[in-house]
Amino acid sequence: MGTASSMLTQYDLEEVQLHCHNLFSQQEIVSLYQRFCQLDRNAKGFISADEFLSVPEFAMNPLSQRLLKMVDGLNFKDFVAFLSAFSAKANMEQKIALIFKVYDSDGNGKISFNDILEVLQDLSGVFMSNEQREKVLIQVLKEAGYTRESYLMLDDFIKSRRE
C-alpha cells in the first residue's frame, strides 16, 4: 500500500474491508487511507505515537496515554481495524472489547482493581484524591458482586451490558 489513495488496489481495499469485518465501505477506506498517509509523515508505513499525538482530539483525550499503547506502530490495516470499533456499524460487543483493552493496559486479558484505579485517575485527575477514588471503586465493585481482589474478564464486561 503506497503513499497516496490512488495506490490502493481493489485487492487492498477488499483485504482491508475483510480485516475490519466490513464495517467500512471501500470509499470510507480510501478516505481513511488518505488520513493515514497524512499522519504517517515519514511514509514509514505505520503511525508512531508522536504522529497520533498530532491529532488534537486524540492528544486532549484523558485516556490518550492508554490509547497510545494500543495504536503506536499500527500499519494501515490495523489502523482501520482499530477505528472499526468507533464505526456506527460496529456492534456493542466490538465496542465493549475496545473499552476492555483500554482498561487492560498490560494486555493480560483481565482487569485488576489497580487497572480500574489507574483509569479513574486518568479521568478524574486532581479532582479526586487517591483515597476517594479507592473508596468509590471499592463500593462500585461491591455493589456489582466483586472485591478488590477480583479480576474482570471480557465476558464480565459483555455480561454487564446485557443485565
Score class of each variant (00 low, 15 high):
100 F>V: 04
141 L>C: 09
7 M>C: 10
8 L>E: 05
14 E>L: 14
34 Q>D: 05
35 R>N: 12
22 N>K: 13
146 Y>H: 06
104 D>R: 08
138 I>M: 08
163 E>I: 04
162 R>S: 12
18 L>W: 00
21 H>R: 15
105 S>I: 12
145 G>V: 13
126 V>N: 10
54 S>K: 08
14 E>T: 10
69 K>H: 15
26 Q>H: 11
60 M>V: 11
85 A>K: 03
73 G>N: 02
131 E>A: 09
84 S>V: 01
153 M>S: 13
140 V>R: 07
51 E>L: 03
125 G>E: 07
64 S>R: 10
76 F>N: 01
95 K>N: 03
66 R>W: 00
82 F>N: 09
130 N>Q: 15
78 D>A: 02
13 L>T: 02
152 L>T: 06
22 N>R: 07
100 F>T: 07
135 K>M: 14
107 G>L: 04
139 Q>T: 10
77 K>H: 10
50 D>T: 07
86 F>C: 03
56 P>H: 12
135 K>S: 11
37 C>N: 13
153 M>V: 13
104 D>F: 08
69 K>E: 10
99 I>M: 14
11 Y>A: 15
9 T>E: 08
133 R>L: 15
132 Q>W: 03
12 D>A: 09
114 N>L: 15
18 L>A: 15
35 R>Y: 05
36 F>G: 04
34 Q>L: 08
67 L>A: 12
135 K>F: 10
149 E>A: 15
104 D>Q: 03
28 E>T: 05
73 G>I: 04
110 K>H: 12
4 A>I: 00
69 K>Y: 01
39 L>N: 02
78 D>S: 07
120 L>K: 08
58 F>N: 03
44 K>L: 13
74 L>H: 02
117 L>C: 14
111 I>R: 01
97 A>N: 05
84 S>L: 01
17 Q>C: 15
96 I>L: 13
46 F>E: 09
81 A>T: 11
111 I>F: 03
151 Y>L: 10
76 F>A: 02
30 V>K: 08
43 A>F: 14
108 N>V: 00
94 Q>W: 00
150 S>T: 11
72 D>Q: 08
61 N>T: 05
102 V>T: 11
81 A>C: 11
87 S>C: 09
43 A>E: 14
63 L>S: 09
112 S>R: 00
62 P>R: 09
11 Y>N: 12
54 S>P: 04
158 I>K: 14
1 M>T: 10
105 S>G: 10
128 M>A: 13
153 M>K: 15
77 K>M: 07
60 M>C: 12
119 V>G: 06
21 H>W: 05
112 S>K: 03
64 S>L: 00
13 L>N: 01
110 K>M: 07
19 H>E: 13
17 Q>T: 07
122 D>M: 15
161 R>M: 12
14 E>Q: 14
55 V>S: 09
86 F>H: 08
93 E>R: 09
127 F>M: 11
69 K>Q: 13
79 F>D: 01
153 M>G: 06
142 K>T: 15
13 L>G: 03
90 A>W: 02
59 A>E: 06
32 L>C: 08
132 Q>Y: 00
73 G>K: 10
56 P>I: 00
150 S>F: 07
37 C>A: 12
118 E>P: 00
102 V>S: 04
83 L>I: 04
2 G>I: 05
140 V>M: 02
120 L>N: 15
14 E>M: 12
55 V>L: 10
36 F>V: 04
60 M>H: 14
146 Y>V: 02
43 A>W: 11
51 E>R: 07
115 D>C: 02
112 S>D: 03
